[in-house]
Simulated assay, not measured.
Amino acid sequence: MAQTHAVILHSVRAERAWAVVRLTRPWFWPLGWAGTFLGSVLATGRWLPEPPALPAYLAAYVVLGPLVWGAVLALNDLHDLPGDRRNPRKATASLVTGALTRVDLRRARGRGRDRADLPRGHGRRARPRLALQRAADPPQGPPRRGRDR
């Protein structure tokens, strides 16, 4: 009995993991990679990174592929969910089928925020620093208003 329960639990986890991958739409990842590659070639003048820089490049590809597209498309899918339920082309989408729920995405968003490298309250601490920097180096000339901004 316990072994059957473990197999079912593994199957559910695999199904949810696949639903998350489908949500991130892997066919969009190369769009982020292309910009990263072009920027690195223009910045360094080299087609391939030097071996010591390879981990940083790989991290950039992971962030600008699945992570950024996953975040953008998850927000889009949450916003478009009522319309997607009426659209026959979206019948297999993870949120429409129920493989993932709004609660799952909100829970994941909270986990990502909690695990971020930024300390809690970083915004409150950054504002005084920005004010001090502006006071030390004020902008030149009168403030711009209206259409001139």
Rank of each mutant, 00 (worst) to 15 (best):
A71R: 13
V96M: 13
A56L: 13
R109G: 12
L95D: 03
A34L: 15
G65I: 01
D84H: 06
G98D: 05
F28H: 11
W33T: 00
L78G: 10
A74Q: 04
E50M: 13
G35K: 08
D117Y: 11
P26K: 02
H5T: 10
R115Y: 04
G70C: 04
L95G: 03
T36L: 14
V63K: 12
F37T: 04
A19T: 07
L105P: 08
V63S: 12
S94F: 06
A59H: 15
R16N: 00
Y61L: 15
V12Q: 05
V20I: 12
T97E: 15
L67T: 09
W33Y: 04
T24G: 09
A17K: 05
D104Y: 06
A93C: 07
V68T: 11
L58S: 05
F28I: 04
A60C: 10
N87P: 09
R89W: 02
N87H: 04
R102L: 11
T36H: 11
W33S: 01
L42C: 09
G70Q: 04
S11H: 07
A91L: 10
L78F: 04
V103M: 14
P82F: 01
W69P: 02
G110V: 01
T92M: 15
V68D: 03
W18Y: 08
F28A: 13
V20W: 15
L67H: 05
R16W: 00
A6T: 10
L64D: 06
S94Y: 07
L48P: 02
P82R: 00
T101F: 06
L81C: 02
H5I: 09
T101N: 05
A60W: 08
L75W: 07
R86A: 02
R25T: 08
A53H: 07
L42P: 01
L23I: 05
P88A: 07
W33P: 00
V68R: 08
T97S: 15
A91N: 11
A34F: 14
A6C: 07
V103W: 15
A99H: 12
A59Y: 13
L54T: 11
W29D: 01
R13M: 02
